[in-house]
Design a binder for these strands. Structure first.
Lengths: 339, 339
DNA sequence: CAATGGTGCTCAATCGATGAAGCAAGAATT
DNA sequence: AATTCTTGCTTCATCGATTGAGCACCATTG
């Protein structure tokens, strides 16, 4: 290795000196456009070899400072505590790298202030593009970015001023509700309205899912019980509290439930076990989101799995094409039952 | 907002011009050491106000290029598909931000080549420090980084040339095995050896866990069945294949299992359901790692939850103190049973 | 033999922020 | 009144990579 390794990093100037040439030539060779700059193959090879030997690493800060595009792409994501966001991030990184982009991901814990702070930090790092995933306030993120001339794409939750890629929440919820209603009827022999629990009443996805939930009831000839629509937030303890309160005021608990995310399901399941309310007859469940262990919990659970690969293909399709129109791409989720 | 927003970003030179002062003064004011540089409070206020109005954002690439430390901290992580790594990343980001560091996280999918590529990319971005989490080849990452004068800390899996923070794998495995053995004896009235499945035979954690597994057997007066130690890899399908092959050659299947990670458990559970081998009598299970839904799967599962907050406190303790000695900090995991 | 063209490089400005060194003007000291 | 100190700035080199402009040299061409 290089003897001065611990003190200073090798730069193109060091390599130029060693090769007896100019920094300009070194730069051209190492960033690949030496043909355009008419550097001889012989010199190119010499420099490449030297760079290797010296363990040269490009200083991206210097490179980005000079270039017009940074080739850094940012993503903000609410949480890492479920498979859905986990696979979004994993796919995002893979697809970004495939395109020679450097991905930066930040978890903002569903906190609007953190979202803005994270976006600001990304802008400081000169990102070319920000993907706002499940953002609480996608439009404010968008405003911040567009003021800096940086494009935004919304994922999972739509915004009103940037292109968005989301699941077909209505369609998924409609089908999921249908199935749970059918399971209830099969199991209990009667038509009863379901409980809807989890999510924020103000977010687009939850509203659309509630709409699908309602329409499925209507189509099945069942009246929705408005006291059973609990958009209490996503967090497990919020869902659990909502269940506790429901049990206190309701004389009869619902036979089936539509649970809006695995993370809310965590709270609901916890309540079911602790409260003992469903000790004799398990409720029929539907969960909007997928988790392998939930699938193993029993055959009384239906799940909707959002189509992450297709969603991210759509996102990078928009990035690659440079489109900025306000389209909302809806990706059909996969409704599956794992017995 | 700024009218030239779409074309060019505001720089300190723009602000200097607007304020009728020098870029140097603007820089001093905005990076907070204007007192040291003897800028008047009046001018400081004026510049701060202007920066706000113009939506100024620091260009980090330029700033980092000039500074000696970048205040960027990198982490490589194998996967985002389980709670353990998910919470590691979430905590890491939070603690980094608390210290004014900018976290960059990259998922390397347990691929040694990707690990090195990711480390190289991070070095290009001038990271001050790299945390190698669950790295397949932590020492090569370490070599790369140290050649660039960047410190490394190993997390989850230890390396031989940098400080490491890991779980007490031996202790956790010992206790977990004890419990599963006890459950087996209680349930079946006889002492039988357990199955060990999942993980890599070559990785430190797996070896330590196998050691705990063996010692617990010995202490209970049970001989380990060597044919039942299946370190087949972590991936669900690898665990599932290992089970299939075991079932083909074994006449009698084990009463209890030590499953090395939730991700392997996914494969094992899948096999159990598909094969029908345990249809009449559920096996007693122990899982090294925690997942809320696994906890709900039944009372026949014991889990070890690695203490992520303590582990990351230890990591940042090392970072803050600047220690570089080759200590391996072992954090006791939490052995819990959720019924 | 002069003009033209191509090849293979080097020079120097530039990106935006930082901070050591220095300078001018007023205040305090002798 | 002359000196020193303090305050409040400005100037300028610098970090490392990129790239337009340009220069020297050799090979063709008319």
């Amino acid at each position: 290795m290089n003897r001065t390794s611990q003190t200073k990093r090798t730069t193109i100037y060091d390599l130029a000196e060693l090769a007896g040439t100019s920094a300009s030539a070194v730069s051209a060779v190492l960033n690949g456009n030496w043909k355009k700059r008419r550097i001889s193959a012989k010199l190119a090879e010499k420099i490449t070899k030297l760079a290797e030997e010296q363990g040269y690493a490009l200083n991206m800060q210097a490179s980005v400072l000079r270039r017009d595009r940074s080739r850094i792409i940012g993503m903000i994501v609410p949480k890492y505590d479920n498979r859905y966001f986990g696979s979004i991030v994993e796919q995002f990184e893979a697809l970004a790298r495939e395109r020679g982009l450097f991905p930066i991901v930040t978890c903002t814990r569903r906190d609007p202030a953190l979202e803005l702070e994270a976006a600001r930090a990304m802008l400081s790092y000169q990102v070319d593009c920000v993907i706002a995933t499940g953002a609480t306030d996608p439009d404010r993120v968008m405003d911040l970015c567009s003021a800096a001339g940086v494009r935004t794409i919304n994922l999972d939750l739509p915004g009103s001023r940037a292109p968005s890629v989301i699941s077909d929440n209505y369609g998924g919820a409609l089908e999921l509700t249908r199935r749970v209603l059918a399971n209830c009827e099969k199991e209990y022999g009667e038509k009863t309205p379901l409980l809807f629990v989890g999510g924020r009443g103000s977010d687009h996805n939850t509203m659309e899912r509630v709409r699908g939930f309602r329409d499925a009831h209507t189509q099945a000839g069942i009246a929705v019980d408005e006291a059973l629509v609990l958009t209490c937030g996503y967090a497990p303890d919020k869902a659990e509290n909502a269940m506790t309160q429901l049990a206190e005021r309701a004389t009869d608990l619902p036979r089936g439930m539509f649970v809006n995310s695995t993370i809310s399901l965590e709270g609901v399941m916890h309540w079911i076990r602790r409260s003992g309310h469903y000790a004799d007859r398990v409720p029929q469940l539907g969960c909007f989101d997928w988790d392998p262990f939930v699938a193993m919990l029993g055959d009384h659970i239906e799940m909707v799995r959002q189509d992450v690969p297709k969603m991210l293909d759509a996102v990078f399709g928009i990035i690659d094409s440079g489109a900025t129109d306000l389209t909302v791409v809806q990706i059909p989720p996969i409704v599956e039952k794992i017995g």
